[in-house]
Structures are given as structure tokens and as C-alpha cells.
Design a protein around this nucleic acid. Structure first.
Length: 273
DNA sequence: GCATTACCCTGAAAGC
DNA sequence: TGCTTTCAGGGTAATG
């Protein structure tokens, strides 16, 4: 399930691989993703050259020339193959691009929660999905003062806040759980109850959790693979996620699980409060 | 206006 | 062995 570290890993791979390539053909499955991917999508990509690859939150953005932006969200199970696998026809391939140098790229998404779109706008910030995103967690915008200010009027619990892409862009279930563990904060704590010191702890925890995961090229359970088809390595370093019943590495209590917003939250009842 | 819930989807795992 | 059920979760619309 691609969150910020997984998307960043793919963005870094693609920067080396596809910048400068011209799209000459786009084939679509015709099946809808989060939104239908129409023929206009293919028309808008064909003939354009990939100039830069950006990441914002969990979105990949290919900056095209003449000016347009190709927006990609991997959803739950989206994968990008560069180059596409040779030996087997890809199942669940929803977009296949051919480049002018005879290479190609495929977007595959079994669960179809992903998103593909092209926007002919002047700036990335004019893309509606991007404009709706909150602070980038690895930027200076995420700091103790900013977070304390956002938490003060908020009555939600911390986990829901961390998952809100309009607040902090890029955290999903895995890294929200891990960051709360690292910050020693209980996922059910109401946001407004945090003091400045705790807000500062959470900022550090989010940054370090994401930074470590990027260094390990993301977390792979079943779905995530980088652009070359290789799994990430960070699952070996998770301290609470999917470790229900195991001993906490910090205090020895047993890791517990609860259900929040229909998602599993893993935490240590001994040292998160 | 804010917070919560239901829904979309398919593969993997569990249960029978 | 094979079928059915359950679970996983990102984003969004609907609901409270």
C-alpha cells in the first residue's frame, strides 16, 4: 500500500529512467479507476515529452512538454513497471505507454483505487487534487509551532488527524501507527489535549519514520514494488504495525490492535499515552 | 462546519 | 481440494 516513502522511491527510480522520453502511444484498459480514464487522457499524453518527475504527498506528477502535468495516484495496489515485464502479459494493466526510443511503461492496479489524469495547467498547484493537500511532512512547513496550532482547535483523535491528507500529505495507516509509537502518543488521544512538547515529539517522529522508510526503499507486504519490480525492505523495521500480540521493543508490553475509522490501528498500551 | 461512516475493488488468507 | 467468507485500506460522498 503505497504511502509517501513508497511513492518517493518510485519517483527517484523514474527520474533516472524516463525523463526526456517522448510518449508516442497510450493504450488503456477502458476500465475505470477511482475515476474513468478517458480517451482524452491518451490524447493529452501522446506527443509530449517527460521533463521532470515530482512527488507531492502520495501523488506522482510527471511534468510534460508542451506544458501539462500527468497526475498518478497508486491507490492501494497501483504499480508502475519500467520496463514492463516481457515474459507475461500484464494482468490489470490499465495504461501502457510506448516511448519513441522503443521502451515503454505500464500502470497496473488490481484494486482500481488509483488515479490517472492529465491537467493542462501552468503550475502544479493548480491541479485540484494537489491544491487540497496539506503540509509536506519532510519540508520545513511541518514544525512544532505549525502542528501545535493545527491541533489546538481540533477535536478528532490523533490517528484520524495524521491520516487527513489535507493536514499532512503522505501518511497512511502504516506510518501513522509507526509515528505515533515513536512519539509515545496514544492513537485515541484527542488532538487538542497535546501540549507543545508533545507536538514537537510528533513532528520528529513523523520525519524520522518517513526518513527511515525512504532509506529502506519503502515497506512491502504483498503489493508494493518499486519501478524495477523489487520489494522494499522497511517491513523488517516496523515496530507496531501488524505486530499484534508481540512484545513491545521499548517496554515489553504486548502490542494491541484497535479499529479506528474502519482501519486497524496498532499501538503499545504500555508506553503510548 | 466538522467528524464519522459507507462504499468502491480484488487478492490473499482463513475457515469450513 | 475447493468453495465461501473475511480482511486489507486511500479517497470521497453521504450522513450525523
Amino acid at each position: 500500500m503505497p504511502e509517501l516513502p513508497e511513492v518517493e522511491t518510485i519517483a527517484r527510480d523514474l527520474r533516472k529512467a524516463v525523463v526526456g522520453k517522448r510518449v508516442i502511444r497510450v493504450r488503456l484498459s477502458g476500465l475505470p479507476l477511482r475515476r474513468p480514464v478517458g480517451g482524452k487522457f491518451a490524447q493529452n499524453l501522446q506527443g509530449r515529452v517527460i521533463r521532470r518527475i515530482h512527488r507531492r504527498g502520495k501523488y506522482l506528477i510527471a511534468e510534460m512538454e508542451p506544458r501539462a502535468f500527468w497526475l498518478i495516484h497508486l491507490g492501494m495496489s497501483g504499480r508502475i513497471f519500467y520496463p514492463p515485464p516481457q515474459n507475461q502479459p500484464g494482468r490489470h494493466v490499465h495504461a501502457a505507454l510506448d516511448f519513441s526510443d522503443s521502451t515503454g511503461l505500464e500502470f497496473c492496479d488490481p484494486r482500481r483505487f488509483g488515479l490517472l489524469a492529465v491537467y493542462e495547467v501552468a503550475k502544479i498547484s493548480q491541479i485540484p487534487e494537489i491544491a487540497a493537500l496539506g503540509v509536506e511532512p519532510l519540508s520545513s512547513g511541518l514544525n512544532r509551532d505549525w502542528l501545535a496550532g493545527r491541533l489546538r482547535p481540533c477535536r478528532r483523535d490523533l490517528k484520524a488527524f495524521l491520516l487527513d491528507q489535507g493536514e499532512i500529505a503522505g501518511l497512511g495507516n502504516i506510518y501513522a501507527c509507526e509515528a505515533l509509537f515513536r512519539a509515545r502518543l496514544h492513537p485515541l488521544r484527542r488532538c487538542f489535549t497535546l501540549n507543545r512538547e508533545e507536538a514537537g515529539r510528533l513532528v520528529c517522529a513523523v520525519r524520522r519514520t518517513l526518513g527511515d522508510a525512504i532509506r529502506h526503499r519503502g515497506t512491502s507486504f504483498s503489493d508494493f514494488r518499486d519501478a524495477n519490480g523489487k520489494p522494499g525492505d522497511h517491513q523488517r523495521f516496523l515496530r507496531v504495525y501488524q505486530r499484534e500480540g508481540e512484545k513491545c521493543s521499548r517496554c515489553g508490553s504486548l502490542i494491541a490492535r484497535l479499529c479506528q475509522s474502519n482501519r486497524s490501528t496498532y499501538y503499545c498500551p504500555g508506553c503510548q499515552n
